Amino acid sequence: MLSRADLEAREAQTLAPYATLSQWSRGREYPEAESATRTAFQKDRDRVLHTTAFRRLEAKTQVFLNASGDHYRTRLTHTLEVQQVARSVALNLGLNETLAETVALAHDLGHPPFGHAGERVLNGLMAGHGGFDHNSQARRIVSVLEQPKAEYPGLNLTLDTLDGLNKHDRAGLGPPSLEAQLVDAADALAYTAHDLDDGLRSGLLSHAQLLELPLWAELSSRTGVAGAVLSEGQRRTLHRELLGWLIGDLTAASDAAIVGSGIGSAAAVQTLPARLITYSPHLRALLRDTGVFLKENLYRHWRVEMQVEQGSRVLTTLFHALMQHPSMLPPQFRERTEAEELARVVCDYLAGMTDRYALDMHASIAPPAQHAPHF
């Protein structure tokens, strides 16, 4: 049986010199004994997987409302696709795949119901109360809200994993670890590929329409898939080949950037002026155009906008109802209002809801046969 020391030694022998080694982890906020058979990052990964917040991702919107169909991506399937991409590229680059996997599994824990629309609504409702951001909420979940042990708040993850979740507020910190940079790239890669696929599957996007997009036109040329109408098999082929193309480019371009930087340690990464996990200039340009296309043609499609409006009304109604009647909060949330601002507690409660739970609660206080109450 391999011990933690054996696993740490294996990392030191097999990973690249710029990888983040678990034996040199920066530790935890609350000191505790490490596992005898798992590295510190393996322990982090297992703790994330066993959270309530992780299980709820299964019923949270990615683009299409969770009840829209059985085959569209949810926030959980998106997370698993990010994990797969991050782990695969990490292995190819000699990075710590367990740290990359852990950050990937935790990166979307803070997303509220109804996707990015839900985030915008909560941010507006929390104006004057600190706002709302799903990245900050993910850190709040793992550091405060999830509490499997009474000895400390949160999951007590390593500072390395927590830093990997600190995507935007990095003033004075420098770039994050290469593993965290990789998760950022894998996130964008996964949602670009699967949103195009879900757009085609739903009929909101057509192959003919996508052929006007440079990325898709080049993909079609690469695969030899022609014609205005796609078969089911052709759609799957395009999605598979798109993933392979993006992953291959990301791996090769990042490897070239790392080699060109001359870095020889994980610590040296934070001294650099820019990130090293990147695409080739050609693919970066194609992906920028694709992001604009998806925003204009899928995320703002009238059928998606109807779901956005529904989710916005649900969250707005629930927020004002709970602010005026905090007695409707579950006991564990009511207790927290003694030490924290009511608005933040209400926001935490709403952000943790699945789409289904939010819709059901809204229906219970604003039945369809009645006019919605004014709070």
Rank of each mutant, 00 (worst) to 15 (best):
A100H: 11
D46Q: 15
P214W: 02
D198W: 00
H129P: 08
R303C: 12
R87H: 08
T102F: 04
L272Q: 00
A190L: 00
T102W: 03
R235A: 10
L15K: 00
L213R: 11
A188G: 09
L109E: 01
S22W: 09
Q209K: 10
T102K: 03
P175G: 00
A226V: 14
H78N: 02
L230D: 10
E29Y: 11
A12H: 03
H239A: 12
T161C: 09
N166E: 06
V308P: 02
L65N: 09
T158W: 06
K43C: 14
T278H: 00
V144Y: 13
W245I: 09
A369G: 12
L211C: 13
D46I: 12
S265K: 02
E58R: 15
V345L: 01
Y279P: 08
G227K: 09
S202M: 08
L287G: 04
A321H: 15
L122I: 11
M328Y: 14
H78W: 04
V314G: 04
F41L: 07
G203E: 02
P330F: 03
A5N: 06
I365H: 09
Y357C: 04
T51A: 09
V292L: 14
S265Q: 03
S3E: 04
L329A: 01
G94Y: 07
E305H: 07
A343W: 07
H371A: 14
T237L: 15
F54R: 10
L165C: 03
M1I: 13
L200E: 06
L80W: 10
I258C: 02
R170N: 05
A90P: 12
K60D: 09
Q270D: 01
L272K: 00
Q62F: 12
D355P: 05
D169N: 13
V144I: 12
A252D: 10
R336P: 04
T98Y: 04
R313E: 11
F333E: 01
R288A: 15
L76N: 10
A67N: 15
I277R: 01
P112G: 02
P367R: 00
V269C: 00
S206T: 15
E179C: 01
G27F: 14
T37P: 02
